[in-house]
Amino acid sequence: MGIDDRRQRERDARRRLIITTARTLAETEGWDAVTTRRLSTEIEYSQPVLYKHFAGMEQLVDAVAIDGFGELADVTRDARLRAGPPNDALARVAHAYLDFAGANPAVYDAMFARATTLRFAAPDTPPQLTAAFDELRQAVDLAHDAQDAEALTEVLWAALHGLVTLGRTGRLRPGHDSDRLQLLVEQFTSRRGPVRRAKP
């Protein structure tokens, strides 16, 4: 292995360590604890080294978010592939989405709540974001014959995100999570057929 290859591997390893440490701090102490000074102390690199990898906190949060979308794509794909009938696939994917959000609240915040430079549904959208959306869409496709599957998937995504956000902030009745999720899935699976667009 050449010197350049080794240096790149070391650089990649440092970058990964910074992202992992930021994520761990955010999950255990909240995003306010994730500062360049704190990261520098935790990983024993100087702040200038951190800035060689990330120009600022926004770029670091973006990196955590991209990892999160990749993981969300993986867990929803696994749920879909383990499913039986089409309706079961949508239910399993929805459960996997909520479970991921519940197990990784700081990462979920990076993905959806914190300021970001990431662009969705654009030519430069990172592949991890596209993969996460595509997994939801495949579950929708299995459960519903829709003319506009993307719009229907966006509605499902919005509903799941609403359940996560309202549940985390105590805006929903406790003890009814399963009932709400079952009702949501039933709305997508009870009437299979084309979705008609409303006239403007």
Rank of each mutant, 00 (worst) to 15 (best):
R180S: 08
G170E: 05
M111N: 00
D78S: 14
T189Q: 06
A159N: 14
G56L: 06
L160M: 14
T35G: 01
L17K: 05
Y97C: 06
M57C: 02
R92F: 10
P86L: 01
A91Q: 06
P85G: 02
A131C: 09
D32S: 13
K52L: 08
A91R: 03
P48L: 06
A22L: 02
Q59Y: 08
R80L: 12
L90M: 09
L17R: 08
Y108C: 09
R114D: 00
L136Q: 01
L152Q: 11
R80F: 11
D148S: 14
R23M: 06
G68N: 01
L183Y: 13
R80E: 07
F69R: 02
D78C: 10
D99E: 15
A149P: 03
L17D: 06
L142C: 07
R196D: 00
P123L: 12
A159S: 15
T165R: 13
V93Y: 00
D78Q: 14
V75C: 13
A131K: 04
L160G: 12
L39D: 01
L184E: 05
G30K: 04
V195K: 11
L118M: 08
M57Y: 04
L163T: 04
P200A: 13
F133R: 05
E44F: 03
D78E: 15
R180A: 07
G193S: 12
A106F: 03
A83E: 07
L129T: 04
G102L: 11
G170C: 10
Q187L: 15
L166M: 13
L50H: 00
Y51K: 08
E42S: 09
A121V: 10
F120C: 08
D148Q: 14
A151V: 13
L136M: 12
E154K: 14
R80P: 06
A94Q: 05
D141W: 03
F69D: 00
A143M: 03
P174C: 07
P127V: 07
I66K: 09
A63P: 02
R80H: 12
A91Y: 02
E29V: 01
I66A: 04
D62K: 07
A146G: 10
D12L: 03
M111L: 09
R192V: 12
P127Q: 09
R7G: 00
E10L: 10
R137A: 14
L183T: 14
A94G: 13
P174Y: 08
D12Y: 01
D179V: 15
D141T: 12
R37Q: 10
R137W: 01
R37N: 07
G193V: 05
R119V: 13
V155A: 15
D4V: 09
Q182W: 10
Y97G: 03
A110N: 04
L98T: 03
A122H: 14
R77A: 14
A26G: 02
E29R: 10
V93I: 11
A101K: 11
Q8L: 11
D32Y: 09
V75E: 11
V155P: 00
Y45W: 05
G2A: 07
L118V: 06
P86M: 03
R37K: 09
R14H: 04
